[in-house]
Write a protein that binds this DNA or RNA. Structure first.
Lengths: 108, 108
DNA sequence: CCCATTATCCCCACAATGTAGGTGTTATCC
DNA sequence: GGATAACACCTACATTGTGGGGATAATGGG
């Protein structure tokens, strides 16, 4: 209960930012898999989204039905200012931790 | 059981690298607190060191008794090549995740 | 209509990590 | 040899990570 985010939580936040206005489950998953090159099951993604929303770091809205085949309505996410601040301070900490280390290990 | 490291585990690895040849418990703790600006209890540090060693990412050796007041012998840690690789790929993933985001959020 | 099909979202149970307080060890000094 | 000091470690519980399977809501065809 200290306010720091886990690794996967951060990935989700970045994925939402990258996805822009189209950030719903499957897109977030794809964003993580293609960029970070690591697999992420949908279940894991949704669970983490829920937790982030509980913490007030992201918000969501359900979209309108689509003109496509069918299916449940999409739920779109966005990162709230508090979420952005978390990411910023996490990156700042990382920069400090890597400051001065040999090249491939230095962050900034 | 997938090979990815947690947030705190990464901090510990970076702290060991920063501490160089003087990386033992208290120094690692100080490195994290001063650089990342976050508190870390010694208990948490040692537990995580143990787990990292179990995974083969770090190695340790116990030092000789010191000429100082007294106390148990220090245990010095170093990051093994596998540990460095983990950090590198973790940073690479982060760069991809932040690519193109507005300034304070991009991790070049 | 009703039902098969599709696209999503969500629940749950268990594994891995994070965390700190308390306890053990080994040394020096008097 | 007992007080004191500097460390390491243990243990128990909280938080995060993960994926399989199930629930929901929409569409179109028969």
């Amino acid at each position: 209960m200290n306010g720091f985010l886990g690794e996967f939580e951060q990935l989700i936040l970045f994925a939402i930012l990258q996805a822009g206005t189209e950030a719903y489950g499957a897109v977030i998953q794809r964003e993580i898999e293609s960029r970070a090159g690591r697999s992420a099951s949908l279940g894991a993604v949704y669970t983490t989204l829920q937790r982030l929303e509980d913490k007030g770091l992201i918000a969501s809205r359900v979209g309108d039905p689509l003109p496509e085949r069918g299916g449940r309505r999409r739920k779109y996410y966005l990162v709230k200012p508090a979420g952005v601040r978390h990411l910023e301070s996490s990156l700042a900490a990382l920069r400090q931790m890597t400051l001065g280390l040999p090249r491939p290990l230095e962050a900034p």
